[in-house]
Each structure stands twice: as C-alpha cells, then as structure tokens.
Design a protein around this nucleic acid. Sequence first.
DNA 1: CGGGCTTGACTGACTGTTCAGTCTAGGTAG
DNA 2: CTACCTAGACTGAACAGTCAGTCAAGCCCG
Lengths: 222, 222
Amino acid sequence: MPAETPASAPPDLRREQMLRAAAELIGERGFSETRIADVARRAGASPALVIYYFSTKDQLLTEALRFSEEAFYRTVAAKLETLRSAREQLELLVRTTCVPQGEGEIPGAWGLWFDLWAQALRHPEIAKDRIELDQRWRDTIARVVRDGQQRGEIGDVDADAFAITFSALIDGLSIQVALRDPVVDPERAFAIAMAFAARELDVTWRPRRAPTAAPSGRSRRR
Amino acid sequence: MPAETPASAPPDLRREQMLRAAAELIGERGFSETRIADVARRAGASPALVIYYFSTKDQLLTEALRFSEEAFYRTVAAKLETLRSAREQLELLVRTTCVPQGEGEIPGAWGLWFDLWAQALRHPEIAKDRIELDQRWRDTIARVVRDGQQRGEIGDVDADAFAITFSALIDGLSIQVALRDPVVDPERAFAIAMAFAARELDVTWRPRRAPTAAPSGRSRRR
DNA sequence: CGGGCTTGACTGACTGTTCAGTCTAGGTAG
DNA sequence: CTACCTAGACTGAACAGTCAGTCAAGCCCG
C-alpha cells in the first residue's frame, strides 16, 4: 500500500486521518482487535504519535466511534436535502441503513455499529453519545414524516411514534443484512421496510418486483 | 465468595460449569475482556484446566456463545408449551426479548448478543451458527402464528413473512431497551411490539395502560 | 532558537498456553 | 485384603508473545 500521507500534514488533519483510520479498522477487525500500531500505520504515522494526540487507546477508539457516527448522520442529512418527495427521502433512509455500502461514509460501518452497541452497554460515556445520536436519527425520520404531511403526501399519524417503531424495524433488518442472513437479503429488507412505511403512513409505494421471489440476479444500483 | 463447586465434579458437569461461567462473564464484561483466568476462577478451577477442556480460548468463548443461545431458545420453547392462547404466547416472546431479565437464562444475556453479532460479522463459523439460531427463532414465531390461525384466533396472514418482520422489529426494540434508551423503555417496547402484532395479525390486544405516559413506578412482574 | 511535532527504541504488565508432574479412583494381580 | 499400577483429572510455575504507553532525543518551522 502506497503511503498517500504527506508525512507531515497540518495537525488538525493529522487528528482526522487517525480518527478515520481508527474508524475503518474498528469496522474491519472490531474494537478490541484494533491495535494502535495498525492505526498508526494506516494513518502514516508512528504509534507514539497516535498516543501523542489521543493520550490513550480507549480515548482514540471512543472518539473514532463518535467520529464515524457523526459522519454518517451528516452525510445522510446532506443527501436528504437534495430530495423533494417524502417517498424518495424514506427510500434514502432505508437504503443507507439496509444496503451494504453507502458511498462517502466510512466503509465497514456495520462492524462499527455492533461494537458501538457492545461498548455502550458497558461504558456510560459512550452510552450517552449513542442515545443522543439515536435520538437525532429518530428526529430525522420524524422530520421527514412531518414535511411529507405538510406537503400532503403523508396521512395523519404521530410522527414521533412512527419514528421510534420505524427506526427499530430498520435496525433489526439491517442486523440481518449485515450478518448476511440468507432469508433477509438487502432487497428484501428494503421491501419490508418500505412496505411498512407505506402502510403506516398511508402513502403509496409499489415494490418494483414481487417482494418474496427474487428470481433474476441484479447488480446493485450505484 | 464461597466455593460452591464440589472441587471435583463429573467431567461433563465441569465442562458445563465452565461454559456457563464463560457465558456469564461474556455477558458482563464482553467477549474480549473475558480472561480464561476469570472463567477458571468462577468455575472453581485452574486456568490450565480450562485449556485442558477447551484447547483454546477462542474455542471456549465460541462454544460459550452457542451454549447460551441454545439455552435461551430452549427455555423459551419450553415456556411456550405451557401457554394456550396465541396472545399469551406472543406476549411471552416479546417479554423475553424486550424486558431486562428473563428468569432461568444466563444473566446479562444482552451483552452476549451484541458480542455474538460482532463475532459473527467476522468469523464465518459463528455466523453460520447465528443464522441457524435466528432461523429457529423465526420458525418459533411462525409456528405461534399458525397455531393461532388454526384455533381461529389469528386472521389470514403469511406467517413466515410476519415472522421476519416481527423478529426484526423485536430485535431493534430490544437494542434500545438493552442500551437503556430513555425514550424506549421496556414497557414502551412491549407496547409497540404487541400493538404491531395485534394490527398485523388481526387479533385484539388492549394495552393495560396508555402506551405513551408511564406515570406510576411499577415493580416488574416476577 | 524555542516550542510544537515526530520518532525509534524500550519497557513493564498482562495473559494465553505449555509442561512436568501430583493426586485420586478404580482396576487387577498375588 | 493388600500392593501395585494406570488413566485421567487437575495444578503451580514458568514461558513467550503481545502491546499500550514512556522517554530522550532529533527535526523543522516561524
């Protein structure tokens, strides 16, 4: 692998390089399997320097988790802006969570989520972050609903209650997808989530193909 | 702590003691934070003996994960037998997953699940187990539905499709509960899941209290 | 030349695993 | 019944590898 790092970058960038590297590695290998030496190598720095910036390994990994989540939500929010109909916006939400690789975010984000949960369960500091982040996620969903309602695309439902249920459903589905469950492939997960939203929000959404049978292999949209 | 271990038990029991100890510890501290020394101490044995039975640490922890999941599903299946109505059976399913501590199973089972997912993502061996176990879980749900249909308690729906969606929803809800999200407390998760099932299965279920407000502190049923 | 950045070399602690035996129960021969 | 023997359960002590974090010294930019 070529060292694409300019050996000495502005210190702010250095930090970010390391955070990004750490986030990627956590996603690939898992939280506890990530060594600071690995992070250093990927960021094009020495292990000592990593400790220089983040004084402890735990701190680095913790910040990396936060960094990645933050990036994820920001990206989604930005993309959301570009879409005009509630249907498209909902599709975006579902697709970014239920379909393997969104573009622009840190790759391997799934492993990251699992580790985030596992860590949150035991470290109150991380737990607090996660709760906040998840609330933001539900707010995003609720806002899509409310906007759709104002435009008359969506019927009269409790947006917040819907957000809670819908985010739970999406989470559950994406676990299966991430773990490559043969019964719940990305297309199916997408179809289930959208069908649920359509029924619940009183909006029309026709699946492009029969939801159960998936006869023809199809290349993923990119 | 009193050594409740009879120093020398039949070897089959020894194995199980260790598996149980390992499963508990994984739940409490997490997969990677579990030392074989800890397992040994809790099982009333020496570290060397643990290696004597399971030749490697990974093997021990892997088997412990499987052991715990297996125990969980068996317990649920047994309890299901004792219930006669579909409504009660569904309540059981939701309660055992969405409410903190089921009785009889390994405590701290939640951390276990997160670790199971994290491990499954990276170790195909574990992934295979998980898929199989999850399929069994969905089958359990589907069977409850079909039985209910035969008894005329449940309307005409695709039991398998329902099982997929419902299990995803439950998973998502229980993540929030496990992570003590203030918005999704156990009662609320329970209410959401049951409401979904009721509507989807065309069965009546009245929440015992208003689903949103939870005014009075209430001791958990035991 | 001063201070932040960067490093290689080092270390101290931890921990999975090995090993060389000890102990016990049960079997067997005398 | 006794003495011996064997096998398997079990252990304490050491080993070896790994890795987070330290340090003293250089580097480079302003």
